[in-house]
Design a protein around this nucleic acid. Structure first.
Lengths: 252, 252
DNA sequence: CTCGTAACGCGACTAAAGTCGCATTACGAT
DNA sequence: ATCGTAATGCGACTTTAGTCGCGTTACGAG
């Protein structure tokens, strides 16, 4: 009985391996836990596959991404890709996980609104530039397609928001924001309108919109809307009125 | 030579039909334009297929949606589904287009912040309720997967934002907001943080966040951030500083 | 009502995605 | 260095998605 071990960053990718193992009817189960071999060839294979996935996604978009093409480009056999990464979804999730380790500089202008403007301008610049934006766009779209991808995306953004919270922490220290401000929420408020257009509504995004989103977030933060205390207003009433829903509805 | 005609709401779905026609090498081209037959059986087929698509999406999610299953559930042959709707993407786009015709009531409390709170609370309620939210969630995710779906999604949200702009128009008339406020932008600002969590970052969404998003949008609107005039600040400098990008990056 | 043909159903078929059993390679522990 | 076996490559194979040619049904125009 052959057991594939769990490799770094690929816990989800080995699910089908475990599942296959469990379906093998061995009347004498071997309780021994296999020792992972994450180094050498395995590490090289992963690096080659991640690189090939990113290249394929950048070139063909998420919809054109196939296991066959990644196999060809990476020189890794497709059986390995299916075994270790389950399929396209696992490849995307792993590529995203690999991208999450990138460090990135935070703006520090001494003014919160300007910091936020720089953040939103960068998001705008990257995602509206065909060359810069192809890979991240495709990765986000691809990641949404599966539980594994969505989990990797959540981890990615959660970490990014936590890091970017520093711009608000500095503003608090400067006395620009009230103590107890949730810095990650400030960054979310600033970037959400951009990602909303880019990835939900598909409406056009311009530099002015990016700037305005930052300004609105800064204004709200200064007004104390993002303090971790609950709002001063009473809780919603127990009888919500019929309201508008801008989302799609199930057809009757 | 058989030509399939363009049907209501299915212009994208007939692309492959036209493409097939064009690839047929007929030395004597027939210049006659076929007369569409959108009524009777064709209308019944469309209704059955849209209903089946919505049911399948609600039950199995966007990832479990297959042409085969829609064909089985609707009783329409899969060859027809491929011919008329091209595939899963066309089915989703059409289901979304069919959903877009639903009318929906707007809140009118006499107070902008409360109106926006009701809108965001409704979005929150629908998308966090497993029963109410399954279909719209799956439709949005599925629509993002193709150009046709994305176009339908854009049309859907653009129309919704335009309609919801009425809450701001009323606020302007009440003297609550400055003249020239872009009402659609106000609604976008209110709802974007919700959809960002739901569909981009996958982070949890609670009622407090929904409420706060409405409050921040109302605050910014009252401050005049959404007037259609450009901002009073000078344009961005010609030399942008290196800034943070909270999106994924291409691995080096 | 008739008629031309758009739209559809069908089964056979092709293409693409994914799996399996076997042999080989190479990673860690000793 | 040796050894057990994790990880991989391979080709054949299965499953699922999508296509094609033909005959049938039924929609509008006249």
């Amino acid at each position: 009985m052959r057991l594939e071990s769990t490799l770094n960053g690929n816990t989800s990718a080995n699910t089908s391996e475990n599942a296959r193992t469990h379906t093998f009817e061995n009347p004498h189960p071997e309780p021994r836990t296999p020792t992972p071999r994450p180094g050498g060839r395995s590490a090289r294979v992963r690096a080659e596959v991640v690189a090939a996935t990113l290249a394929e996604v950048a070139e063909k978009g998420y919809d054109g991404l196939t296991v066959e093409a990644v196999a060809t480009r990476s020189g890794v056999h497709k059986a390995t890709l299916y075994r270790r990464w389950t399929g396209v979804d696992g490849l995307v999730a792993d590529a995203l996980t690999a991208s999450a380790d990138q460090s990135w500089p935070l703006p520090d202008t001494g003014d919160l609104r300007e910091d936020l403007r720089r953040i939103t301008r960068e998001v705008f610049t990257v995602f509206t530039d065909p060359d810069l934006g192809a890979t991240p766009t495709a990765l986000i779209l691809a990641a949404q397609r599966s539980d594994a991808g969505a989990a990797a995306l959540r981890a990615f953004f959660t970490a990014r928001h936590r890091q970017a919270a520093e711009v608000s922490e500095r503003a608090v220290a400067r006395g620009e924001l009230p103590a107890g401000t949730d810095g990650a929420e400030v960054v979310r408020a600033a970037t959400a309108p951009l990602y909303y257009r880019l990835f939900v509504t598909g409406e056009p995004l311009d530099a002015h919109t990016a700037e305005r989103a930052a300004d609105a977030a800064a204004l709200a933060a200064r007004a104390g809307l993002f303090t971790t205390a609950p709002p001063a207003d009473p809780a919603p009433t127990a009888n919500p009125a019929p309201t508008a829903n801008p989302g799609p509805r199930k057809a009757s």
